[in-house]
Design a binder for these strands. Structure first.
Lengths: 109, 109
DNA sequence: ACTTTTCATGTCATATTTGACATATTAAAG
DNA sequence: CTTTAATATGTCAAATATGACATGAAAAGT
């Protein structure tokens, strides 16, 4: 429910930086969403870096183009597990995923 | 299928360090399992550090004792999403999760 | 322009994950 | 040793994630 609310805000043009979320989210919920968005962003970034299409990536991990699109859109109907699998198949290592999570600015400050 | 196979080995006493896995796993599959095991280990470690029972943790995240046990056992029937939620509620930050993934020795060498 | 490729979004049947529950095993305390 | 608390393990119906598919919108190419 909260996830949908957030997405709606983005759709309305809020252009949230990392997670400028207020409105009834516990710190844990905020961090959780933050992690998911970080990872989904990297999927998109790395896929484009390799100049792969969503369809190519989908086939490599046995998924579908539409699901990759949903991952990259931060859709709540996708699991961290699948996102991580995607990253690994895009040549991102566990260590690099670690760095991603470590080197992120504080949400609001 | 592969996940079960691995667990069987552990049960038989192999006491795998981080992921001493050979036997038909792609590097991506290996890394994926490695990540899951790292995270599940930290859940157990941190919970014990705080001297929480599995039941306490379960209630905090709206889950059940048996599911926490499965998470800590590295059971394949648990999602990274739930593991991450557990970590966050145990006071582990996104940055600390990042460090965890970054600072792990190579599986086999 | 238009043709083609890529991406976005919705739906849906199937697959997987879920909390709850029962119960067994182990550990701690008395 | 006995009792009690904590953890492990299995099962199962309900909830959620999934790939496949359709179709629309945008981008890229010609």
């Amino acid at each position: 429910m909260d996830k949908k609310k957030r997405k709606k805000l983005e759709d309305k043009g809020f252009t949230i930086g990392s997670t400028t979320d207020f409105l009834g989210l516990t710190p844990e919920e905020e961090a959780y969403i933050d992690i998911r968005l970080d990872i989904s962003s990297l999927v998109k970034k790395q896929r484009k870096k390799l100049k792969w299409t969503q369809d190519q990536l989908a086939k490599v991990i046995g998924s579908s183009q539409s699901r990759i699109a949903k991952i990259e859109a931060g859709d709540p109907s996708t699991s961290l597990d699948l996102m991580i699998k995607a990253l690994l198949h895009l040549g991102i290592s566990k260590q690099e995923i670690g760095k991603l999570l470590e080197n992120t600015l504080e949400p609001v400050l």
